[in-house]
Design a protein around this nucleic acid. Structure first.
Length: 576
RNA sequence: CGGGGAAUAGCUCAGCCUGGUAGAGCACUGCGUUCGGGACGCAGGGGCCGGAGGUUCGAAUCCUCUUUCCCCGACCA
């Protein structure tokens, strides 16, 4: 491509509402243009990169035996009503009516549609397993779209769905996908990690997220540097402390802590450590009859309650935080000074985090406004906790659940997710087949997603400098830029540039010849901003000596290469 | 949903307090000079100052409403 024939639209300054690096650079480099919140046009330059991601994803999916199809973005409401998600999905699901007042949705995902296709077409175990995938735009009406294409409302996704006659076969395919995804992200040149993920309400063991490691990521990942353990913090298990609870050493005392309601404030006020304080979190859950049950969840002052873990406890599914009135009703005290001491065990369920259960001489609210207790001990000042559970998020320094070291926490951008769905949708949508005994059985399903457009943002988050994007070669819109010094003034330069351009094209290289009548500084700045990995500068002096100048995007300085050797040199660099 | 902030040229912003003919830089057009790190000069084009009301002789500016966007929060007692 000649840049005079292409559409470059670079900006010196990023739009002021751009938040993260990738968003700023994508807008400055002219890869995308914003159409509305979370909705973007992919400009010709950005589309080249997006297509390269797609191509790699397709190649590897096809190689794994999956078959591509294309499902509609607009889906009938009936399927969603049948699966139950019409009610459950919430406002993220964009719904609308057609001219006949029939309900439709714009697909945020395609389990319903694919299951509908398969249940109509597949009747026999002989037709299984089957893995169908598509690369398609999705729409999710996010509350807060942000970070450009990283959390857009409309985005491009590869979504695949596999159907199996047995759970064992699903597990086999799941492993195939695990390996396929690892190959895809490796080919894309990304630093990533597969992490065990929460399986939500569906249960089961099989779910992994693939995260690109970047500080701007929205997810916290717990990983063990000494093993391959990695899990979303939502899921990572916090083990019970290795050392048993120390003996009580202090007497129980009630101290005035006027106005000190937050744990950190109480700790500072009492000149003690936050790790000596126990935080009581009041929650309420309703049972099948709609009767409220009140519970106190105890976690150490410096720890965070993990709501997903808490909601997995019996009777706490769908729990919510207690209102101030409820706290008052059950504990006779306003929030800020509540604690587990002296509560009515018949009315208030107390669940202690494993760490709390091993604490002695701790501080907690006195259930009296303006007062806290110090020197509190289980078994002396209050009953031993009736229930002990893992309630908190792991923190850096916690022991790894696999027993092989200490956890670290890093941020990640979720770019892939694989999931053993089991029979959730197949059952709801009556997707059955006849097994080899002629018996009707529900199909086992897996689903596998890759955020194609998000990958472009994630790749930039991982690869940039103060001059702009540094695309991994596999993603670069062009892999080589030819920058002639004086294309419009010198016949020799022009001829040399054109010749090299033709040679590289013939060699199958995605080459951009910057033949604009721009000053050198502008051309250099643009080629760097848009992240082209390799650059060849053709200048008068070098050319006279039979040389051109080569510089890799990450190189400190340029090197002179013989004109006759430059194509081979580039091909070698590209192959790396 | 709650709290902040913003909205003026394609982009980044000034002007608003203290009302009086709409500005700068970048980008764009033309001409000239320049040409190895985002050049310079001259001459241009481009705005319903987000929208609707109000106050006023007069509103980008003051008041009210509204829309949109951004940020933070929406457990951490």
């Amino acid at each position: 491509m000649r840049s005079s024939q292409f559409f470059l639209s670079t900006l010196k300054e990023a739009p002021s509402d751009a938040e993260v690096v990738s968003q700023k650079l994508m807008l400055r480099a002219g890869l995308i243009k914003r159409a509305a919140a979370g909705i973007y046009t992919w400009m010709p330059l950005g589309l080249r990169t997006l297509r390269k991601v797609e191509a790699i994803v397709r190649e590897e999916m096809n190689r794994s035996g999956a078959l591509e199809l294309l499902m509609p973005a607009v889906q009938p409401a009936e399927l969603w009503q049948e699966s139950g998600r019409w009610e459950k999905y919430g406002p993220e699901l964009l719904r609308f009516k057609d001219r006949h007042q029939r309900d439709f949705v714009i697909g945020p995902t395609h389990e319903e549609v694919i299951t509908d296709v398969v249940r109509r077409e597949v009747k026999s175990y002989r037709q299984l397993p089957l893995h169908l995938y598509q690369v398609q735009s999705k729409f999710r009406d996010e509350i807060r779209p942000r970070f450009g294409v990283m959390r857009g409302r409309e985005f491009l996704m590869k979504d695949g769905y596999s159907f199996h006659a047995s759970f064992d076969d699903l597990k086999r395919e799941y492993q195939v996908m695990y390996d396929t995804y690892s190959r895809i992200f490796t080919r894309l040149g990304l630093q990533f990690r597969a992490v065990a993920a929460d399986t939500g309400s569906i249960g089961g063991t099989g779910s992994h997220e693939f995260h690109v490691l970047a500080d701007s990521g929205e997810d916290d990942i717990a990983y063990c540097p000494d093993s391959d353990y990695a899990a979303n913090v939502e899921l990572a298990e916090a083990l019970a402390p290795a050392t048993p609870r120390p003996a009580a050493g202090e007497a129980l005392a009630k101290v005035a802590t006027p106005g000190q309601t937050a744990c950190a404030d109480v700790a500072a006020f009492l000149k003690t450590d936050l790790t000596r304080v126990v935080k009581a979190i009041a929650v309420v859950s309703e049972d099948a009859e709609g009767k409220p049950h009140f519970a106190l969840l105890l976690v150490r002052g410096d720890h965070e309650l993990n709501e997903i873990k808490a909601s997995k406890l019996a009777g706490l599914t769908d729990f919510r935080f207690a209102s101030d009135a409820e706290v008052e009703q059950y504990l006779g005290c306003q929030p800020g000074y509540i604690g587990p001491v002296g509560v009515d065990a018949g009315k208030v369920r107390v669940i202690a985090d494993r760490t709390v259960a091993a604490m002695a001489d701790f501080v907690c609210g006195a259930n009296e406004a303006g007062f806290h207790l110090t020197g509190v001990n289980f078994g002396r000042d209050l009953a031993e906790p009736a229930e002990v559970a893992d309630l908190r998020n792991v923190v850096a320094g916690d022991p790894s659940p696999d027993g092989k070291g200490v956890l670290g926490i890093c941020r990640g951008i979720e770019v892939g997710h694989i999931f053993q769905l089991r029979t959730k949708y197949a059952e709801a949508l009556n997707c059955k087949f006849l097994d080899d005994n002629g018996r009707e059985q529900v199909m086992e399903m897996g689903c596998y997603g890759i955020g194609v457009s998000r990958i472009v943002g994630a790749a930039i988050e991982q690869n940039y400098d103060d001059k702009g994007i540094i695309f991994p070669a596999a993603l670069a819109p062009f892999t080589v830029a030819i920058v002639p010094m004086g294309y419009h003034k010198s016949d020799a330069i022009r001829d040399a540039a054109n010749a090299l351009y033709a040679e590289l094209q013939a060699a199958g290289v995605d080459v951009l010849l910057d033949d604009r009548n721009e000053r050198p500084g502008s051309m250099f700045a643009d080629m760097e901003l848009i992240g082209i990995p390799h650059r060849v500068v053709i200048g008068e002096k070098g050319l006279a000596a039979g040389q051109v100048e080569y510089k890799g995007r990450r190189d400190e300085a340029a090197t002179m290469v013989a004109r006759d050797a430059i194509v081979a040199h580039l091909l070698e660099s590209l192959a790396k």
